[in-house]
Amino acid sequence: MSEPTDTFDDVLPEALQRVSPAPLVDIGANLTHASFSHDLDAVLRRARAANVGELILTGTDREHAIQAVELARRHLGRAPSLYATAGVHPHDASQWDSALEADMRELHRQPEVVAVGECGLDFNRNFSTPAEQEHAFEAQLGLAVESGLPLFIHERDAGSRMLEILKAWRDDISQAVVHCFTGERATLYGYLDLDLHIGLTGWICDERRGHHLRELVGEIPANRLMLETDCPYLLPRHLPAKLKGRRHEPALLPWIAAEIAHWRGDDEASLAAATSSTARRFFGLNALHEET
């Protein structure tokens, strides 16, 4: 059987086939989601064709973190390069116990794992109580200190409490990124004052709820900004063609990069290069490449 060619194939309409002028890093891709189970190889080929060269696969619980590590191992030496995070999402914080903590500690020792998380606080839906969320989050902060890994943080409608907790831990943790940032200016400045990184998604492309981000995005220093799809969620609403099934995927990251570049007043190539350099440094990807 011949090797697959670098094409977007017929899943992405021609109008959506955009290639980044510089390699991109997608710091938040939920590729262990069931919606990718039937065509993951094609998804990765399309990412490569779009010039998305590195993907951080989000581990939101024990099962998905293990799957992310296994996927990164299976794809070793191929493009795009895959890495994993390992953590417990605040929705599942009620499940935190000593056995889960031990499993997370072991996952953090795996070379494919480049961050602790997705972990944090979500006071919007409260699938776990705020007390359970805070307990699990602080336990994972402790694991980040122990492992030396950076943090991949989820925060929704919990900015003030998140800032209180992170201020208490900031001298002990290495680095942290607030992924899929959607908050207001005061929360953003609180995170930047703590020397945290900010991950932006297609939320900024949403004319219904992303307008405030367009005003804020230029205030994020280039060396603190990273890009992500958070796929299969948060499909950008400004795309010029309909996408069957409305599943987001890494090949669409160039559309997000272009939108962010526009609102920052940057050219697309410069933004792509800067955010990718920041991501590689934050997650230690350059060192990992040297080891392999």
Results as ranks from 00 to 15, higher is better:
10 D>L: 05
22 A>L: 04
26 D>I: 12
29 A>K: 10
35 S>G: 06
36 F>V: 00
38 H>G: 11
39 D>V: 07
42 A>S: 15
49 A>F: 07
55 L>G: 04
56 I>L: 15
63 E>Q: 15
64 H>C: 05
67 Q>Y: 00
67 Q>E: 10
77 G>I: 11
79 A>F: 05
83 Y>D: 02
88 V>S: 01
92 D>N: 12
93 A>I: 00
101 E>L: 11
104 M>R: 03
106 E>P: 03
108 H>N: 08
108 H>E: 10
118 E>L: 02
124 N>C: 14
127 F>K: 15
141 L>I: 12
146 E>H: 12
147 S>G: 07
150 P>T: 01
163 L>W: 02
174 S>L: 07
177 V>A: 03
182 T>E: 05
185 R>S: 11
202 G>L: 09
221 P>W: 04
224 R>H: 14
231 C>N: 10
232 P>E: 08
235 L>F: 04
241 A>E: 07
242 K>I: 01
245 G>F: 09
246 R>L: 07
250 P>M: 02
255 W>P: 08
256 I>W: 01
258 A>C: 02
261 A>W: 02
264 R>H: 00
267 D>E: 12
270 S>T: 15
271 L>P: 09
271 L>M: 07
275 T>R: 11
278 T>H: 07
282 F>T: 01
285 L>T: 10
286 N>I: 00
286 N>Q: 14
287 A>E: 15
